[in-house]
């Protein structure tokens, strides 16, 4: 696949215990993210979906050791990059949204300030201009009264509003080619969840973003994504288009996961 923005091949790794024992958790993980498409990585707790994505940005836990494989972003081998090389890619070319936005934002700075700082870090310019950019980004993610909201702190935002602010930062203040969303709607109410997903789809389409959506919620995936990667116990068990995965799943685990999501009986 030449038109993949990110290619992960035979990626294996694990954690070192304090006693120095190595426990392998990822086994030859491989998938690619086609440029301009939305790809979902689905799986249950412990399937390795988040660790793999964090490893792309060099954000894995300090006890994580990678053993084999490669992660190529637009032709660049990410695993060989030093801190400086990673910094040049993080935010400006690949950015990430985490599950709990209120925990991801800094509690002691106003929302506007955090967005403006991020803008200045990547683009320079005056604080006033950066602040205008921040307010504009908040407006584009449909936060009402963006001027007033920009002066507020994360604790004054609801979970859904904070996630909108995070998306503004990750997708609009940073202008990445690849946006990785790690469980962006988990813990939000269904109506808020549906609004956030609509926002993500809108932004992805209008800006030609490549999106990687990490989630355990197959309902969200069915409606929004083009491709699906199913992971279980540190392995990729099946990949395909959303239609293939949902209408003709080949792997037994995929079928089990689908049945469990719909609460229907599973028949092999």
């Amino acid at each position: 696949m030449s038109d993949a923005i990110l290619e992960i091949e035979n990626f294996s790794g694990g954690f070192m215990s304090p006693a120095g024992e190595y426990n392998q958790v990822l086994h030859d993980v491989g998938y690619c993210l086609p440029r301009g498409a939305m790809t979902a990585v689905v799986g249950e707790t412990g399937s390795g979906k988040s660790i793999t994505a964090l490893a792309v940005l060099g954000l894995q836990a300090p006890t994580f050791r990678h053993r084999t494989g490669s992660i190529r972003f637009d032709g660049t081998e990410m695993l060989n990059l030093d801190a400086r090389g990673l910094r040049d890619i993080r935010g400006s070319r690949i950015s990430m949204v985490f599950q709990d936005a209120r925990a991801a934002l800094n509690p002691v700075f106003s929302i506007g300030r955090q967005l403006a700082d991020t803008w200045m870090l990547h683009n320079g310019g005056s604080r006033a201009a950066a602040m205008d950019k921040a307010v504009d980004a908040l407006r584009q993610v449909h936060i009402p009264e963006p001027e007033r909201r920009a002066r507020q702190y994360p604790h004054e935002f609801s979970g859904g509003m904070a996630q909108r602010a995070m998306i503004a930062m990750a997708a609009l203040i940073c202008t990445p080619e690849l946006l990785i969303l790690d469980e962006p709607t988990t813990g939000l109410d269904v109506t808020t969840q549906a609004d956030i997903m609509e926002l993500i789809v809108d932004l992805a389409q209008s800006r030609g973003l490549t999106v990687c959506l990490i989630t355990h919620d197959l309902g969200v995936v069915a409606e929004t994504c083009d491709h699906v990667v199913v992971m279980n116990k540190g392995c990729v068990v099946e990949t395909g288009t959303t239609e293939q995965i949902f209408t003709a799943p080949q792997d037994a685990y995929t079928r089990k996961l689908l049945a469990a999501s719909l609460l229907t009986e599973y028949s092999a």
């Binding site: 269904v190 109506t191 969840q193 549906a194 997903m197 309902g219 995936v221 069915a222 409606e223 949902f246």
Partner: peptide, 14 residues
């Protein structure tokens, strides 16, 4: 509320 709940089926448009 009902119309916002996602369904894990392909091709369902809410």
């Amino acid at each position: 509320l009902m119309s916002a709940a996602p369904v894990a089926r392909y091709g369902v448009k809410r």
